[in-house]
């Protein structure tokens, strides 16, 4: 029996619309639950007692332990940026602008975004895995039975650490990236050191740096809340922990890259 092609087409369109609708509902549901967790975390953040010891522990976990990877990434990013800019700009005798390009690219864009992606991959994955394991082994239930709010005890310290440490790491990444660019331009490619710094300071504005740090603050909050959400609501044993960890890294990275455009459009008008 042959099926009418028109009916087949309508069926296909119907199925696609249904799939899109279900995807939209699932996305809205997840976004809603993340926002609820965010509001609950902010409420618990304001109310005493304050989790000072736990927060310091998370600052070390998220900030200090991420530093080596951030430093290596930043220095090589600055170096390759200088190398590519120099060889490109040389074609139209604009090598003197390499310092400017490196400084602006790193402070406005690459510093916060690359730091965010590294922290999402390292600390975000660790947060989701740790909370996910605690969920499937009933440690989060145990906290509840010991009259301890798990949002306050587990999520708030990670949230504060994310918001504080992402800008701190970004400042270091900015500095190291610019030094990496300087090293390649001046020491390897033979450009003039005075001109490099003069051009860097002539065009770099304070707003380039602090707007980059505002983005980093937002990325830190997003990584912490998304990763904690994925871990906190893990289901299904070891497989669930694996899925939560992957989900945390993917969703955090996507959020960083997508929100980066909108934040840049808003902050750097």
């Amino acid at each position: 029996m042959t099926v009418n092609p028109v009916i087949k087409f309508i069926e296909c369109v119907g199925r696609t619309i249904t799939l899109l609708w279900h995807t939209f509902i699932a996305f809205s549901e997840e976004l809603g639950r993340i926002m609820l967790l965010l509001f609950s975390s902010i409420k618990q953040l304001i109310l005493p007692p304050f989790e000072v010891k736990n927060t310091l522990k998370q600052i070390i976990e998220i900030g200090i332990k991420s530093m080596p990877v951030v430093l290596i990434t930043a220095v090589f990013t600055g170096m390759v940026l200088a190398l590519q800019s120099y060889t490109g700009f040389k074609r139209f005798n604009a090598e003197v602008l390499v310092g400017t390009v490196v400084a602006l690219s790193i402070t406005r864009e690459l510093g916060p975004v690359l730091t965010g992606l590294i922290v999402a991959g390292r600390a975000g994955a660790a947060m989701a895995a740790e909370l996910g394991t605690m969920r499937v082994t009933e440690q989060i239930d145990a906290l509840e039975t010991l009259a301890t709010n798990p949002v306050k005890y587990l999520i708030v310290p990670r949230f504060i650490a994310g918001v504080i440490m992402l800008p701190a790491l970004t400042v270091i990444a900015d500095f190291i990236g610019i030094i990496g660019g300087y090293f390649v331009t001046v020491n390897l490619l033979g450009a003039n050191s005075t001109v490099y710094w003069k051009r860097t300071w002539d065009y770099l504005e304070t707003s380039d740096i602090y707007n980059g740090l505002i983005k980093a603050c937002f990325f830190g909050a997003a990584i912490a809340i998304i990763s904690c959400y994925k871990g906190f609501y893990t289901q299904g044993g070891a497989e669930g922990v694996g899925k939560a960890t992957t989900g945390a890294v993917v969703l955090s990275s996507m959020t960083i890259l997508i929100s980066d455009y909108f934040l840049s459009a808003w902050l750097f008008k």
Partner: peptide, 15 residues
């Protein structure tokens, strides 16, 4: 909840 104590199936110790 401070009036309760609970022993979990797999102990649920904070690792």
């Amino acid at each position: 909840r401070k009036r309760f104590g609970m022993l979990f199936q797999m102990a649920a110790l904070f690792d």
